[in-house]
């Protein structure tokens, strides 16, 4: 049974799954309710929110100030980008006299919480390693695109980008014959966050191991944004490590993946990028 104090709304949403499809709004509401209930159960928690590395706030508790959360998330995302030098941010904690703030990576999203130091460590661990990850996992099963960001086009951090460029160039890895490709990104700011799927079946046997397959809906978006220019390759970047490859691409043939913001990668490319099925990657189109 569900523990005492657990949000009835959250439970209802979970139980409704078999009856009808749950929309992304309902999923977000379930996460928000969970955060609100956490605050009810643990009054030591003053703020709780979940965000993605692209600065999107997925959910926040009902009392959190939106502008404060947005400005903090902005800085947190900068920190996440800087933390690539250490292999990607897993956990961040700030301790002051009476309060502390923690940020924990939970898959492709981050869970931030401000609480008093009176909060028991076991309770804290139960929240960050138990309750919230379970809720997020359920949401991921229902609405995977919600967790890994629906195909969004967002701007990179301009000042930070210049700083990271030299490092990224040195750490970038190019697969097979793609070395020294003379091509430019048609727009540095056009980036799609996609979910990794395995390239399997006939596609894996027929196609080259150095090719990737991209959701046709995303390709259409790129073509529209690029003014019908020909996209010759894509650059795939692993979010945590910052590792990149440039490779040829084809649209996904399996209709089950249409509009799902998915990229199919071969085992070889997954190994090179140090990523796996279900993880999020950034994909940039490149034109002639």
């Amino acid at each position: 049974m569900f523990p005492r104090g657990y949000s009835s709304k959250s439970i209802k949403l979970i139980l409704d799954l078999k009856g009808k499809p749950v929309s992304s709004e309902e999923c977000v509401m379930a996460i928000q309710n969970t955060l609100n209930e956490l605050r009810n159960i643990c009054p030591q928690i003053s703020t709780a929110y979940i965000f993605k590395p692209d600065k999107t706030v997925l959910a926040q508790d009902k009392d959190a100030n939106k502008s404060d959360v947005a400005s903090t998330v902005d800085k947190l995302c900068m920190l996440i980008k800087h933390a690539r030098v250490g292999g990607g941010l897993e956990f961040f904690r700030v301790d002051s006299l009476g309060y502390c703030a923690t940020v924990t990576r939970l898959g492709s999203v981050y869970f931030a919480m401000v609480h008093s130091r009176a909060l028991d460590d076991k309770v804290l661990c139960g929240i960050t390693r138990g309750i919230v990850p379970i809720v997020l996992k359920l949401v991921e099963l229902i609405q995977p695109e919600l967790m890994y960001a629906t195909p969004q086009i967002f701007e990179d951090f301009p000042s930070e980008k210049a700083q990271m460029d030299s490092k990224e160039r040195s750490s970038s890895e190019v697969v097979g014959s793609e070395k020294n490709v003379d091509c430019t990104s048609f727009s540095e700011s056009v980036v799609s966050q996609l979910t990794v799927e395995n390239l399997n079946g006939i596609s894996r046997l027929v196609g080259s191991q150095d090719n990737v397959r991209v959701d046709p809906a995303i390709i259409n978006q790129w073509v529209t944004l690029g003014g019908q220019k020909e996209i010759i390759k894509v650059e795939v970047e692993e979010i945590q490590s910052g590792k990149k490859i440039v490779c040829n691409f084809k649209p996904i043939k399996d209709v089950a993946f249409y509009g799902k913001a998915v990229i199919q990668l071969s085992e070889k490319i997954q190994t090179t990028l140090q990523t796996k099925r279900g993880a999020a990657v950034l994909v940039r189109p490149i034109i002639k």
Partner: peptide, 29 residues
């Protein structure tokens, strides 16, 4: 960036100035 973030957190959450920060990355602490 970590200190800047700690400052931001202390301002928006009225934490008081953070005196200890821990950054736990995949390969670095």
């Amino acid at each position: 960036q970590a200190f800047e973030l700690a400052k931001e957190l202390s301002q928006v959450s009225c934490l008081g100035e953070g005196d200890t920060l821990l950054l736990d990355c995949a390969d670095l602490k």
